[in-house]
Design a protein around this nucleic acid. Structure first.
Lengths: 126, 126
DNA sequence: ACCTTCTTGACACTGATTATCATTTAGCGG
DNA sequence: CCGCTAAATGATAATCAGTGTCAAGAAGGT
């Protein structure tokens, strides 16, 4: 593995909320790492393909990345103000989605679920 | 109401699966309606704000639109091959999402849920 | 018909992401 | 260590959905 990939991996380890590719690129550059934007994108792509980072799409179409704790299928509860993220494991919904699909004759069911809210500290600060 | 908005509304009535803004624009032009792309976007934006159309984000970041049957909060079961869409009403998940959020001290909970699958006819044709 | 206001539409622009391609590096056999 | 080859990198150009701009056009009341 190249030093660039190691660097990307390292930043992802340092933060625990979702960051955009460009934010990560800035942080790397600021931290003294010499790395191109394209490489950051490529690395994040690879990490997401291998299931090592989670991808979140904001409403304005930007992709945010975050190292994920668990590799199994899971969802996120994200604070819309500070970005704090809790990984959610929801057997209930998994089963629900599956049964809904089956009830309508659909197969190969997949689903996307994201939960947004305002976390406790952001709610009180406001 | 202008004739352009009426035209957009009319196409949306004619189809019942998700279409992109540009697809709708093409169909309007082909159908003889003179309308600008910007107007299509503006109209769709307005319709989605007023809850008259549903918006779906594809994985490559494109917005798809569809006239929705029910105005209340609901989700979609979409065939990934033909685009056939079933509107889903899920009190179970609504409650689930709410309780998950509350359990972690989050307030103002929102969620996005989409279910994808292959519908019966597409599964057999394949 | 007149005036005021909102809408339209051609086109320029944005901003994230991807493609290009020449240069550099990693990893390996010798 | 030394080269060698395939893969990775990075500066920059290209892409593409969507939005802003602004002059010209329609709406609708008087």
């Amino acid at each position: 593995m190249t030093k660039q990939r190691a660097a990307v991996s390292a930043v992802l380890d340092r933060v625990d909320d979702f960051r955009s590719a460009q934010q990560l690129h800035d942080e790397l550059r600021t931290g003294g790492d010499s790395i191109g934007l394209a490489t950051v994108y490529r690395t994040l792509q690879a990490l997401s393909d291998s299931g090592d980072v989670d991808v979140l799409r904001t409403e304005d179409g930007e992709n945010l990345f975050r190292r994920c704790q668990r590799s199994e299928h899971h969802h996120h509860l994200v604070c819309r103000t500070c970005g704090r993220t809790v990984e959610i494991d929801g057997p209930t919904v998994e089963a629900w989605a599956e049964s809904i699909g089956a009830a309508h004759g659909f197969v190969d069911i997949e689903h996307t679920i994201e939960i947004f809210g305002t976390c406790e500290s952001c709610a009180t600060t406001r």
